[in-house]
């Protein structure tokens, strides 16, 4: 895996991206700005599912109008995120927060799938309910907390010097979690 990262890191476009002041900062700024669209709209949908906001509006009405915007936000976040990773693969590869962020994103995706394939099937019954059933509220709670954690972990990536391979003891969980043996120990 690390060989792949080294190969990516040496690509001409990758070097050009990380050395470009304007393109790099514009892509990073777009990534952060899109959080307002993606996380901002998902918070509102989750609050409706929790029965906190828009209690008198059918859940489907909120989903129909807001989820397309959330999807656009997610698409932009994914594209800019992949470009940012491509520009600095070695910086992110061993970063503990980056790895945790990917895991929490995967969990949030599973949560969305559970909602879509299990909970949403019975939505017609509780679409107008002020307080959706417990299963929907649990999913909304998990979604809300996981995206907040993703935002925080994304911010903490910049503080990778807190915990990194040189600070872990060989054999510790975090040492293996961050794939430090690939670096040849410390």
């Amino acid at each position: 895996m690390r060989d792949l990262m080294l190969w990516l890191d040496g690509q001409q476009l990758s070097v050009a991206l990380r050395e470009s002041f304007l393109v790099w900062s514009a892509i990073e700024a777009t990534h952060i700005m899109t959080l307002m669209l993606f996380v901002g709209t998902i918070i509102m949908v989750d609050l409706r599912l929790l029965g906190v906001l828009f209690k008198n509006t059918p859940v489907s009405a909120i989903e129909k109008r807001i989820l397309p915007l959330t999807m656009i936000g997610f698409a932009v976040l994914m594209i800019t995120g992949v470009v940012l990773f491509y520009a600095k693969p070695l910086t992110y590869y061993n970063n503990m927060y980056f790895r945790l962020k990917l895991i929490v994103i995967a969990l949030a995706m599973i949560n969305i799938m559970v909602f879509h394939f299990r909970v949403q099937h019975g939505q017609a019954k509780w679409d107008n309910a002020e307080k959706p059933p417990m299963s929907a509220r649990v999913i909304a709670g998990l979604s809300l907390s996981s995206w907040v954690i993703v935002v925080c972990l994304g911010r903490l990536i910049a503080y990778g010097d807190w915990f990194h391979c040189a600070t872990f003891n060989e054999g510790d969980f975090l040492y293996f979690f961050s794939d430090c043996p690939q670096l040849g120990g410390h």
């Binding site: 307002m36 669209l37 709209t41 998902i42």
Partner: peptide, 14 residues
């Protein structure tokens, strides 16, 4: 700061 920015984004956008 980032979480508050996201919440503000949601409130403004909605």
């Amino acid at each position: 700061h980032l979480v508050a920015l996201s919440l503000l984004g949601g409130a403004i956008l909605l």
